[in-house]
Computed example of a mutant assay.
Amino acid sequence: MTFYRRNLPHLQPAGAEYFITFRLANSLPKKAIERLKKERELLFNEYSQGDNDKSHREVNRRIFKKYEEQLVKNNRGPTWLKDAPIAKIVEGAIHFRDNQEYELYAYCIMPNHVHLVFKHLTNKVKQEPDEYPVTKILASLKKYTSKHCNIALNRTGNAFWQDESYDHVIRDTEELRRIIFYTLHDPVKSGFVDDWQDWEHSYCKSEFRDLS
């Protein structure tokens, strides 16, 4: 689990299914991030006596929930993704990588962050094992969209995306169902629409619509 960190503390299994969240630069105050980091450390200490893998999942689940709440309610940071031309750039980059780097399951572009669900595709050409395939995919996607979104916004010399992102390996079908539902219903939960299908900047692959 990578959370609020630039270093890579874990492997990202090739061919796994992933839930990704990344956000705009400065979309959360530094003090809020520091509070969440400290709370995460305290929770890890609290859960350290139990099953290590299960404990890590529970801690990250609880902190991610608070992280998401902060993103939704924070109206002081940038919300460039609510502008259709900007969101379309991100949508195009996400779809461009479908069936090349991953099999795209679902996404939702919110005003200041993006949720993305996919299955990583392993290369047919035999190559050296890559421990961090998702990190490379996100780096490429962010680099491209940052450049073109900044051009569209007439911004220069400023970061568009926050460096840190959240990636989670999906373990089973039930978890996949919950995550796709969560992803698609984020704008409903936030009060933007009554039905997720009314949100312009979301997508769900046809075979997963029953999960939503």
Rank of each mutant, 00 (worst) to 15 (best):
W80D: 01
I33H: 03
K88Y: 00
L211R: 11
T173M: 15
I33W: 03
H115C: 15
P78T: 09
Y47N: 01
I89R: 00
S55P: 00
N123W: 12
I33A: 04
S55D: 06
V125A: 14
M110K: 08
K30R: 10
Y47K: 08
K189D: 04
Y4I: 08
R209Y: 04
P29N: 06
A14V: 10
L176P: 07
T79N: 01
A159R: 10
A32G: 04
Y105L: 15
V117L: 15
E207V: 11
R57Y: 03
G191I: 09
E17I: 14
T122I: 13
F44I: 05
C149I: 01
L176C: 12
Y166K: 11
S27E: 06
K31L: 10
Y182V: 08
P85Q: 12
F22S: 06
T21M: 04
F160Y: 03
K142W: 05
P9S: 03
K136S: 15
L184D: 04
F181G: 05
Q127T: 14
V90Q: 00
D167A: 09
Y4M: 13
L184F: 09
H10G: 07
K66G: 02
Y18W: 15
Y67Q: 08
S202G: 09
N150R: 04
D186S: 10
K143C: 13
P9A: 07
K73C: 05
T135V: 06
K65G: 00
D51S: 00
H201W: 15
L81T: 03
D172V: 12
R171G: 10
R6A: 08
V59N: 00
I170P: 07
E17D: 09
L36Y: 05
H120W: 10
N60K: 07
F160N: 01
N75L: 05
E91N: 02
P133R: 15
A139D: 11
